[in-house]
Design a protein around this nucleic acid. Sequence first.
RNA 1: CGGGGUGUAGCGCAGUUGGCUAGCGCACCGCGUUUGGGACGCGGGGGUCGGCGGUUCGAGUCCGCCCACCCCGACCA
Length: 477
Amino acid sequence: MGDDKLPKQSENFSEWYNQLIQKAELADYAPVRGCMVVRPYGWALWENIQKELDSRFKASGHVNAAFPLFIPMSFLEKEKEHVEGFAPELAVVTIGGGQTLEEPLVVRPTSETIIGYMYSKWIKSYRDLPILINQWANVVRWEMRTRLFLRTLEFYWQEGHTAHETAQEAEEETLKILDLYTDFAINEAAVPVIPGIKSDAEKFAGAKQSYTIEAMMADTKALQSGTSHNLGQNFAKAFEIEYLDRNNEQQFAWTTSWGLSTRFIGAIIMTHGDDQGLIMPPRLAPIQIVIVPIFRSEDEQGIVMTCVNEIVKLLSKFRVKVDDRENLTPGFKFNDWELRGVPLRIEIGPRDVANNTVVAAQRDIPGKAGKLFLIIDNLDMQIEKILNDIHNRMLDKATKFRDSHIFEPKDYEDFKQIVSNGWAYAYWCGDPACEDAIKQETKATTRCRDLHQQKSDGKCIYCEKPAHYKTYFARAY
RNA sequence: CGGGGUGUAGCGCAGUUGGCUAGCGCACCGCGUUUGGGACGCGGGGGUCGGCGGUUCGAGUCCGCCCACCCCGACCA
């Protein structure tokens, strides 16, 4: 419950974030450093995210399965870049049942290796391809600095792992998923994202190429919100995923992997939230509509509650909660549900019952300006439209905010200024040395090169040598 | 792992040069009055003062060691 007041976003964004998560009961700190407990309200949001993603995966031919939590240490070591990338953040089990294990087991940081091993068993011929598997799982990465949802030692995600006959098919799959993530982010979460290509320094350990959806948070920092990797034949070679092709010749398969995690909840919080608290995107909100009944006497209570119950029936296709707590005033409840980000609040008092109306307060428009007076007839139809309007306004607002904080720098001095409070869209020659120097000097990293950018001529923002593509640079979570 | 900081009730804090039964606000429980934008009164419950050791007649307070967490750097979905 909201006890005392939330810090203002503008005064201390990071405190605002931490406290909001706890006050809104999305998550809490676990007794283990860097671990979180996802509370029912937060998990309900995750379940809605899962539902939307899962149905998209299934619709595009993917199936779910479950692979082990433990991975033999030697598996990680089979792909050179992969082990180098993950070695520093592995949790390793060395004792089982009181006995020292012959081979240490890694708690999965991601499952390319063990799934690769299984794929090599399952795939014999081109007739076995493609194989399109997803798993919903928890993974562990021993991070140094943690933040609720954004970076915890253990987090929840989905990881898709596919194997294909040709390089082209693998690339198509990688891009198809990137597109799927983009569609999800925009149309379900109202989070505008920029799909693009990661630099070599930022790509997944072991990938040939990584794609990302990048979102701008309300403090202008960037958040990598989902990734899709074309693994080429790297893992196929490491795990001998071979098949007999249509010409009766042995070939290595082409694989991909892609994931979206509970980090996305952080994206939702930091894209839409305001000084009052969360603003849940209507299509993912655990509670889409909260009804606050208002009455003085027991007589009024009876009249109002009868009306409330009818309206609950009328709104059965939405996720509705009636706040019938008797020890709290309506004013307190208004603030409480605003903190929790419920997109639409319906107030029903004796006056409304008499007039056959309700008051509806839209979360994204604070105060009286967002209140609507609705006639109860066809309320479900009206509300369907209102929730869509809220989604559209949220997306529009976040998009405008993002676009008004992206600038094309004139020179490197200008660049430094820009990335202190926004994103720079600048030519980069592609040299990792420039990328690294910029990171050291400004804390800004390359986020991505947007997907459909046309080649053009310019000069690198850092070294001023010829460059042909612009890249987004930003401070990132 | 380096630099800085903080540990007293669920949360936020006070606690004097060491002294009596460790306090306050919010939250929680009970009763009553309230209820259209964060209600009020009365009563009540809740503490190994981060841990261990030391100094002392006496330690929340002084000393030592340890632990945890937070902020800033190096690593990251």
